[in-house]
């Protein structure tokens, strides 16, 4: 982390004022004005050190980033860690590519302390975006200098399509192999075991295994077959493509919340029916980064 020092805009305003004082001091050969002038200059010099040290022992660690859908707010955090034995004040964060009114300030971090800084941005379009770097700066204490260092984040984030759509779920296609068209987990085929969670219905607990001294497990029954529920681009033929993407994303998230396996068909891509966070993420990413020019 290299900290750079610049004269700030305010410092640039201050210099003509110092120059005016110098003129007055020279013109009147006024030693007292000289003293005030030199005191201010020295103050400026000393403030450089303070401005520098305000950032020098600071570590900026990337924090978390929440998923975001178009039209919503992007929320992410950075963790500011002060390794110094003194408090640190007035740390501003800024993205070089952000609009001019983007400003996040961390007012103070206690000595050896940690502070989480939250960023919230409005996002309007879907797609894959980057936060390449974050400029951390401080003009404490006098505002005459600005110490800056750039934290490389190289964050890539996907803004998923807006979740909305007027359509009903498509009817599920019967599985060609098992003829099973069950919508929900809980078919007849034994699917697997998973750990019992407190408060769950005990109907499907594998009591036999419990009797053998194993921990409580819940038998999960699946509908064995796959490929029942397909969210298909072509089903939505009459909508424009953004609405289609929103509709598909909406369905996908709904299906995921209900635990229903689903498949996704896009003009150039296809995701066979599955469930789980990874699958959802892949589908949503595909929807978010969809472009007609694929590949």
């Amino acid at each position: 982390m290299r900290t750079q020092l610049y004269l700030s805009r305010y410092g640039l305003v201050f210099i003509p004022i110092l120059a005016a004082m110098l003129l007055a001091a020279i013109n009147y050969d006024n030693n007292l004005v000289y003293i005030v002038l030199f005191l201010l200059i020295s103050l400026m010099v000393v403030s450089v050190v303070y401005t520098y040290r305000n950032l020098a022992r600071l570590e900026i660690r990337p924090g978390h980033m929440w998923p975001v859908y178009a039209g919503g707010t992007l929320r992410y955090t950075l963790v500011v860690i002060n390794h110094a034995a003194y408090p640190v004040y007035g740390i501003t964060f800024r993205r070089p590519d952000a609009p001019p009114d983007f400003r996040v300030i961390c007012e103070s971090v206690p000595p050896e302390g940690t502070q989480t800084v939250e960023f919230i941005e409005q996002v309007h379009t879907r797609g894959r975006f980057h936060i390449r770097e974050m400029q951390v700066a401080s003009i404490f204490p006098l505002g005459l200098f600005r110490s800056v260092h750039n934290v490389r984040l190289n964050w890539e984030y996907v803004v998923y399509p807006q979740l909305k759509g007027p359509r009903q779920w498509p009817s599920s296609e019967p599985d060609p192999r098992t003829q099973d068209d069950g919508h929900f987990r809980g078919g007849e085929n034994f699917y697997g075991l998973r750990n019992y969670q407190q408060g769950e219905s005990q109907r499907h607990v594998d009591w036999k295994a419990v009797a053998r001294g194993r921990p409580m497990m819940v038998k999960e029954f699946g509908s064995g077959g796959m490929g029942r529920l397909w969210f298909d681009w072509r089903q939505l033929g009459d909508m424009d493509s953004e609405s289609k993407l929103s509709q598909l994303a909406y369905w996908a998230v709904q299906a995921d919340q209900m635990g229903v396996p689903f498949g996704l068909r896009l003009p150039h891509q296809e995701f066979p029916p599955l469930s789980g966070a990874l699958h959802l993420q892949k589908c949503l990413t595909a929807l978010a980064t969809y472009s007609r020019r694929w590949p």
Binding site: R61, P62, G63, H64, M65, W66, P67, V68, Y76, W155, Y157, V158, Y160, V253, D256, A277, L278, L280, Q281, L284
Partner: peptide, 15 residues
Amino acid sequence: LDLLEASRRNQPAGG
């Protein structure tokens, strides 16, 4: 830890 944290960013449904 950084890698783990980074992988968890921007994930829908807690990936």
